[in-house]
Simulated assay, not measured.
Amino acid sequence: MGYVTSLFARRMVAAAGNSIDGAALLQGVGIDPDAPLDPKVMIPAATYYDMLERLAAQIDVTDLPIRTGASMKLDEYGALGLAFKAATTLGASYARVERYARLWTSVVRYELRADPRGTLFILHRPGERRLGMRLSNEATLASALSIARQVSPVPVKPLEVLVRHPAPKSIIAHEDWFGCPVRFGMDLDAVRFSTTALAQPNILGDVGISRYLVSHLDKELSEIADDAPLVSETKGAIAQALSEGAPKMADIARGLGLSTRSFHRRLSEHGMSFQTLTEETRRELAEGLLRDEGHSLAEIAFLTGFAEQSSFTRAFKRWVGMTPASYRRDRSRS
């Protein structure tokens, strides 16, 4: 399963305003709304899309991705944001995103591709074009321009924006933000820039600082690759422990041969939190057990670590937007 940084979820909820219960939405995807913003804290991409679809059921989200993308700040991206600033040109900044985006997402790959009309900054995200993904893609394209405008000494205006999915009911906000044609129903999700725009020197471009930051990012990237098995091992240990109630981090760490401090640090370096992994494991286990008619709802509640069926029902509805019984009925009809 792929992951995205919790930063995106927080910004989407903030852009939605006070007409929604933002704290409840964030808690529903395993994010503590009162915790400091940390781009290294990840959530499952599918969970993020679910949250966006629940949000869309409450408010008009036509221009929400644009408002979200416009609100993104480079300072919130950690070392990658600093490296984007320190690159000598805008093209070099986007090359940093192409290389290091794995630090904030495992479901998106970026590509800079030259073509006869300039250069395309392409967003590759596989999977079903469900509403949550469509909203996320639009916000990602909008944020790509937002961060460019934060480093350039002159206004940045793309030649055009290409979007794979069909257009929303209005694209006025999209074209106002990008300042160029936005074409939906295309073969790519991409922003096309002129060669001149990408050659523009950045305000804070610095070769020495850039070299240091790239070294730091390379180290972070290698740690993500090295610790990948830890996530699956942790989820397996959590699943085995759930029948005895919600597991404690210290017990899971001990079972994996780690101290609690080391376990927490390694999960954080991988962009994970123990709370997020526990919630994800519970949800995945519950969905799998609900597809098996051999387990009653009370048994599934017990196997996923809940003392009472009512607590399980509330948690499951928070995760997927429907009760366990409704979920089971829907799956039996499909």
Rank of each mutant, 00 (worst) to 15 (best):
18 N>E: 08
18 N>T: 10
19 S>Y: 00
27 Q>S: 06
34 D>F: 05
51 M>R: 00
52 L>H: 00
53 E>I: 03
59 I>Q: 05
59 I>G: 06
61 V>A: 13
73 K>Y: 05
75 D>W: 06
77 Y>E: 11
82 L>F: 11
95 A>W: 06
102 R>P: 01
103 L>T: 00
108 V>K: 07
124 H>C: 11
126 P>W: 12
138 E>S: 15
142 A>C: 15
150 Q>H: 12
159 L>Y: 05
160 E>V: 13
167 A>D: 09
172 I>T: 09
174 H>T: 02
178 F>E: 03
187 D>E: 13
191 V>N: 03
192 R>P: 04
193 F>T: 02
194 S>Q: 08
197 A>I: 14
203 I>E: 05
209 I>L: 15
212 Y>W: 06
217 L>M: 08
218 D>V: 08
221 L>Q: 13
227 D>L: 14
227 D>G: 05
232 S>I: 10
238 I>G: 02
239 A>N: 05
240 Q>S: 09
243 S>K: 12
245 G>N: 07
248 K>C: 04
258 L>C: 09
266 R>H: 13
267 L>E: 11
278 T>Q: 12
281 T>V: 06
286 A>Y: 06
293 E>D: 11
295 H>A: 09
306 F>N: 01
306 F>L: 07
308 E>A: 15
309 Q>F: 09
310 S>I: 14
311 S>H: 14
312 F>G: 00
320 V>L: 15
334 S>H: 06
